[in-house]
């Protein structure tokens, strides 16, 4: 798991205005768990290199890496992956990585997912792993905070994933039918839509640093045990 694997883009699909899904063929890549990430290394023709971490959007197939990349304006790697990369392009991948922010089908028990923006990617991998595991009857809930409906990754799929209840919360612009005015995640959102603390759910929070800190604090305020809350922050460009 420690070495770099040669990877080749096999498919790209639009995901949102500034995001897309990249599927890479990676010989030797195996055994990924939901929630894990990979490091991606790009090497320019003149030798310049850049490394960034991306969460896996889906696990379960060896030698295949599926990423969902959101463009960071002014960034160096994400604009390339979102706008420029095409099937046949080559890069390197190290992983699967990280044993902390993961969900395993035999973990059992209720799971509360809390996503800010593209932080939904590793949480979608967990929901997909749950749906793909015939033995798991763990109830899943997802609280997903996004700017606008157009920024909701995998919305159709996550609204109809077996065993998962998804609530979308909009910070800038809500759909016309929405009764909740657009705004940041609040304690009321958490108490209304997340599992109650006495359920004892494992909680996974992923998003930008500010969102993760605010959401984790609200969960603790709502009565969740801080020791059961796992977090992953991102901020790479």
């Amino acid at each position: 798991m420690s070495s770099w694997h040669a990877a080749q883009v096999v498919r790209t699909e639009p995901l949102a205005a500034s995001a897309r899904v990249l599927t890479l063929a990676v010989p030797g890549f195996a055994g990924a768990l939901a929630g894990q990430h990979v490091d991606v290394r790009l090497t320019a023709p003149d030798g310049y290199q850049a490394v960034r971490s991306y969460s896996l959007a889906r696990v379960g197939r060896d030698e295949v890496v599926e990423l969902a990349v959101d463009e960071v304006r002014g960034g160096e790697v994400s604009p390339y992956l979102v706008h420029e990369a095409r099937p046949g392009d080559r890069m390197e991948v190290r992983g699967p990585l990280g044993g902390y922010f993961v969900w395993r089908p035999h973990d059992g028990g209720a799971v509360q997912l809390v996503a800010g923006g593209s932080g939904i990617v590793p949480l979608a991998a967990m929901a997909r792993a749950r749906a793909a595991a015939p033995t798991s009857d763990a109830p899943f809930r997802l609280l997903a905070a996004v700017r606008t409906p157009a920024d909701a990754f995998f919305a159709k799929e996550l609204d109809s994933t077996e065993g998962l209840t998804t609530t979308w919360l909009y910070s800038r612009e809500a759909p016309p039918a929405s009764t909740r005015p657009p705004g940041r995640l609040t304690l009321d959102d958490v108490t209304a839509h997340a599992f109650a603390p006495d359920v004892g759910a494992r909680v996974y929070v992923c998003g930008p640093t500010g969102f993760v800190e605010a959401a984790a604090a609200l969960l603790v305020d709502a009565g969740h045990d801080a020791a059961r809350i796992r977090t992953e922050r991102f901020g790479g460009v």
Binding site: V51, L97, Y100, R233, G235
Partner: peptide, 24 residues
């Protein structure tokens, strides 16, 4: 300000050095 990440992101840089996942 470039936003920091968290210790999860150390798994890659440390993968070559330790047999287990040091982020745990």
């Amino acid at each position: 300000d470039p936003a920091p990440l968290d210790g999860n992101s150390l798994a890659g840089p440390l993968a070559g050095l330790f047999a287990t996942d040091v982020t745990l």
